[in-house]
Design a protein around this nucleic acid. Structure first.
Lengths: 338, 338
DNA sequence: TTGAAAGCGCTAACAA
DNA sequence: TTGTTAGCGCTTTCAA
């Protein structure tokens, strides 16, 4: 296994172990050019590799961030994870991945696990937006939430204003002239579900449009959830437009529609939340609220680096990406039937 | 920060530090019931948390596996990562995520980085299937490849027989009666591209069908790649059927078709490789080669646990999931036009 | 059943 | 500029 240690390199180079460290770390002490070269030669000759664990123990930093997410298989989350890893690596760190599998108990285990591992920071999205903040704060570990959490928890968070985004998305449907606008949303007890519903409501009320409570279809944030919600919707009077609160629900919904011979935007205009590249390539492409994933990732890492223990809340501007599903652009389907 | 150490717990409990360890680890020595309770009380009182890094240094195991992938934002890969994390966690370990960002140089950095971190094992998919095996073997770190690699590299690998899968997928199109069958594939220098092309060829030759070299559309394994390849394809004489060598290429292709008012399976029958849940929910759903992700993840972790240094190669059975894109089932589109 | 103490491989303060 | 050495917090052997 990993046999060679620093002592052997020092012996080989005829120096002390400290000098070997100075060479490897480019500090904190200067090393004479000649000595440095002897050390480098010795390292090459022995095939020495510094032991990251020993280093972490002595230096007090693991050069590791923890990332806790509900489910890495969600494309929005994996694209965020991708961006975070790129940023973290630029900072010389790698990510310890904690995938809760949409399970609250598992999430708790992961929080504990990653804290024990002395991560230098934690980037955290809770399964149900009831995060285990006390644990993290008690450990003194820097932490950035990637979600809205209850304001009374004094935490750092990075997010877009989801209520406003939901409002804008719904506004967009209203500006199309649609008057019957339903919503497929996540579990009602989740804070972000509540935000998105409330943005939707606000837009409807402001426009003096009917707000049918039976047009709130709560379900999981999954394709299957969207599919089932849409089936329930199809069982009643079909609204003219729909706001789906994530991309996967939107796809599930489109599938359910198609199975009844219906499609967007012809039969139901659609906008959704947190679109990824999938939204742009889908047929029809989806009109969607886009979060600036790369910028947010950059900021998250920066907040961990400049940690001061204060609860900063950083809000990012979202973008409403116009696709074909709302009816703005002629969709390929439409062209097809020409 | 993390103040409390084992020494304080020992003092609080009036025992030695060793006993505290015995209690925490349930061994290797038995501890008297009364003592154990005193220790547990002391732990609770002081809020002590074992330091995972110190533990790793002393015990020689980090309880961590490294995962190196080309890009976590690829849905097939993220679903594999999800499954791997679940399995690893059941084994008391977490994953260090190394996302190469489709960059070969970055991949090398990550391999080195994770090896230095003394991961207990490595699960590795190379960007271009030319993995840095020597480095890993030199470190003695257990490693399982999730890809076919050159047979002369003596490594552990888990995979489906991609050539055979490509053959079966193409056979399926042939059995539909299609005679003009193109392929959108990845970069030609990649081993898995070659395998998939060769399965496609084999099926065509066996059936005595024409094999036009200009019907091999090589591109990136991305949506955009598939999109561009399809545009090139549309510029020439359109084949009747197509085998896309991953799911993202298939989606990109469908998009390009739609923009010309064409769709699958009516204008072009389509099968693809490595479908995920997206394939099933897409309209039309995709006929696709499915890898048994969960089983493969289980096996990968097991191989790392039972590491013996021998180069085992473990082949899994794939499944051809029939969707609408090949023309087997009436597609929602078809129904629509009824 | 428990205590003392020798590492694990490195960082960095202190001395020279 | 370089060498010596005391930790970092834990595991585990050796003695008691």
């Amino acid at each position: 296994m990993q046999r060679v240690t620093r002592a052997e390199v020092a012996k080989e180079a005829g120096t002390s172990v400290a000098v070997v460290s100075y060479v490897i770390n480019n500090g904190p002490r200067p090393v004479a050019q000649a000595t440095r070269e002897r050390v480098l030669a010795a390292i090459k000759k022995t095939g020495y590799r510094p032991n990251g664990i020993a280093r972490a123990l002595a230096s007090g930093t693991t050069r590791t961030y923890g990332l806790i997410v509900p489910n890495i298989a969600n494309p929005f989350i994996s694209s965020m994870a991708h961006a975070l890893q790129q940023e973290a690596f630029a900072d010389g760190r790698v990510l310890l991945l904690g995938d809760s599998g949409d399970d609250r108990a598992r999430e708790l285990e992961l929080v504990n696990n990653l804290l024990h591992r002395q991560v230098d920071g934690l980037i955290y999205t809770s399964v149900d937006r009831h995060p285990y903040i006390e644990l993290i704060q008690a450990s003194g570990t820097p932490c950035v939430m990637l979600d809205r959490v209850a304001p009374e928890l004094n935490v750092c968070a990075i997010q877009v204003n989801e209520q406003h985004a939901a409002y804008q998305a719904t506004r967009h449907l209203i500006e199309h002239g649609y008057r019957e606008i339903a919503i497929i949303c996540g579990p009602l007890e989740m804070l972000n579900t509540q935000d998105r519903i409330s943005g939707w409501k606000q837009a409807l009320e402001e426009a003096g449009l009917p707000l049918h409570p039976e047009w709130i279809f709560s379900t999981d944030y999954t394709r299957h959830g969207g599919y089932q919600a849409a089936q329930r919707m199809l069982g009643g009077g079909l609204p003219r437009a729909l706001f789906a609160t994530n991309e996967q629900q939107a796809f599930g919904c489109l599938r359910a529609l198609a199975e009844q011979g219906l499609s967007a935007p012809a039969d139901l205009a659609l906008v959704c939340f947190n679109g990824t590249l999938e939204s742009s390539f889908n047929v029809p492409s989806l009109t969607t609220v886009r979060q600036p994933v790369t910028k947010m990732a950059k900021k998250a890492i920066e907040m961990l680096k400049r940690w001061d223990g204060e609860p900063h809340n950083c809000e990012f501007a979202f973008e409403l990406e116009i696709g074909e599903s709302c009816g703005c652009h002629p969709s390929p389907h439409a062209r097809m039937s020409k």
